[in-house]
C-alpha cells in the first residue's frame, strides 16, 4: 500500500509536470476567433480647406437598447444585485464651415467645447457620426427576514449569512411548532416572512455627465457638444479633460423611458416594499403568467427560488425525522 507521503510526492510531481507542459505548449492557450465583426470605425475629421474650420453639432440620443442583465447574490439570501446594461446610441453632426460663419454661430457648452446648433447652407455637412456608449444600471436588492408573528428581523452574520439564517430558521420552525402535533406543523417557507426591496444603487458609464446633460436637459434647450472627457463623439479633443463625474441615479429612469424594448421593470414581482410577506406567498407570486413573462420578475424570482431551496434544507435540518434532521446534532429544549 502506498503511503500518504509518497502519494503527496507523486501528486506534486504530477502538478509540476502539468505546469511544465503548460509552459511548453502555448498553442493550448485560449482559443481566439475572428468571427466577430469589427464594424465601421469613426475617423478624425478631414483637414478643412483654407478659410474653413471643422465644427460639431450638439450631441443627441438616437436610441436606447437594453443589451443584457445579470443577477446574483452579494451576500447569500440577504443582498443581491441586478445589473442592467443599455447601449445608448449617440449621434453628432460634423461639418466644415467658413471661418466667418463659425465665429458668428459657435457656442460654448458647460465643458468648454465649441459647437454650432444648426449648420447654415454655406457649411459642408458630413453624414452624422454615430457611436454607442454602454450604461450599466445597478439595482441593489435587499432582503429582510423574520419569523411570522415576531417583531424583530433576523440579523444575519455579515461573513456567513447562511449559517446565521440556518440557526434563526431552525429556531423559528421549532418554536412555532413546539406544542403542535407533527401532522399540523407549519412549513418554514410559510413561517418565514420576507421584506424584498430593490432600488437603483448606481449608474455606471464613462460619459455620465454628457448623457445626463443630453437626456435631463433635453427640454431646457441647453446643448452639449462634448463627452465627459472633453472630446467630440469622434474622439477629437474639444476641451480640457476634467475629473470624471458620478452619474445621477435619475439617468436610470430616463434610459428605461427611452428604451426600445419596454417593459423592462416588469410588474414589481416579488417586491414587497417596506412590508413583510411570507416566503410562500412570494413564491406563489412568481408562478403567475405575468411573472413568467417578465424578464425582471424572472431574475428576482431566481433569487427567491434559491432562497426557497435553502429554507427547505433548513426545515429538513429542523425536522428530526428527515435524514438531514437525524444527522443534525441534538439540540436542547425538546422542540420538534
Amino acid at each position: 500500500m502506498r503511503s500518504p507521503l509518497a502519494a503527496t510526492g507523486l501528486g506534486l510531481a504530477a502538478l509540476a509536470a502539468l505546469a511544465a507542459l503548460g509552459a511548453l505548449a502555448p498553442g493550448c492557450g485560449p482559443r481566439r476567433s475572428g468571427h466577430g465583426t469589427t464594424g465601421p470605425t469613426i475617423g478624425p475629421p478631414p483637414p478643412p480647406p483654407p478659410g474653413s474650420t471643422t465644427v460639431w453639432g450638439p450631441l443627441r440620443v438616437e436610441a436606447v437598447d437594453p443589451v443584457r442583465s445579470d443577477v446574483g447574490w452579494v451576500r447569500d439570501f440577504v443582498r443581491a444585485t441586478r445589473v442592467v446594461a443599455f447601449d445608448v446610441v449617440l449621434a453628432q453632426d460634423r461639418a466644415q464651415c467658413p471661418d466667418a460663419v463659425t465665429a458668428s454661430l459657435a457656442k460654448v457648452d458647460e465643458r468648454g467645447c465649441r459647437g454650432v446648433d444648426a449648420f447654415p447652407a454655406s457649411c459642408k455637412v458630413e453624414p452624422a457620426i454615430r457611436a454607442r456608449v454602454e450604461v450599466e444600471v445597478v439595482h441593489a436588492i435587499e432582503l429582510g427576514h423574520k419569523c411570522a408573528g415576531d417583531a424583530m428581523t433576523y440579523v444575519p452574520n455579515e461573513d456567513d449569512p447562511r449559517a446565521s439564517l440556518t440557526v434563526a430558521g431552525r429556531t423559528c420552525f421549532k418554536s412555532k411548532n413546539k406544542l403542535k402535533p407533527e401532522s399540523t406543523w407549519t412549513s418554514l417557507y410559510e413561517l418565514t416572512e420576507l421584506r424584498f426591496s430593490e432600488r437603483v444603487a448606481a449608474v455606471r458609464t464613462p460619459f455620465a455627465s454628457a448623457l445626463a446633460a443630453v437626456l435631463l436637459a433635453h427640454d431646457e434647450g441647453k446643448k452639449t457638444y462634448c463627452r465627459d472627457d472633453g472630446a467630440y463623439l469622434d474622439g477629437t479633443a474639444g476641451a480640457p479633460v476634467v475629473a470624471p463625474t458620478t452619474a445621477p441615479i435619475a439617468l436610470a429612469e430616463l434610459l428605461v423611458a427611452r428604451a426600445a424594448r419596454p417593459p423592462l421593470e416588469g410588474d414589481g414581482v416579488p417586491l414587497t416594499g417596506d412590508a413583510f410577506r411570507s416566503e410562500h406567498a412570494l413564491w406563489e407570486s412568481c408562478n403567475t403568467k405575468a411573472a413568467r413573462e417578465s424578464l425582471v420578475a424572472r431574475e428576482r424570482c431566481l433569487l427567491l427560488r434559491q432562497l426557497d431551496r435553502f429554507l427547505r434544507d433548513v426545515e429538513d435540518l429542523a425536522r428530526p425525522d428527515t435524514p438531514k434532521g437525524m444527522a443534525a446534532p441534538a439540540t436542547s429544549g425538546g422542540a420538534p
Binding site: 464594424g39 443589451v67 443584457r68 454607442r132 456608449v133
Partner: peptide, 22 residues
C-alpha cells in the same frame, strides 16, 4: 450568477463604440 443577453438590435449592433479621445 445568471447573465441574460438580450437579442441584438440588428440595425444598430454594427454601430461602433465611442472611440477614445485623441
Amino acid at each position: 450568477r445568471a447573465v441574460v443577453i438580450e437579442p441584438p438590435a440588428k440595425e444598430r449592433c454594427t454601430i461602433p463604440f465611442a472611440p477614445p479621445r485623441r
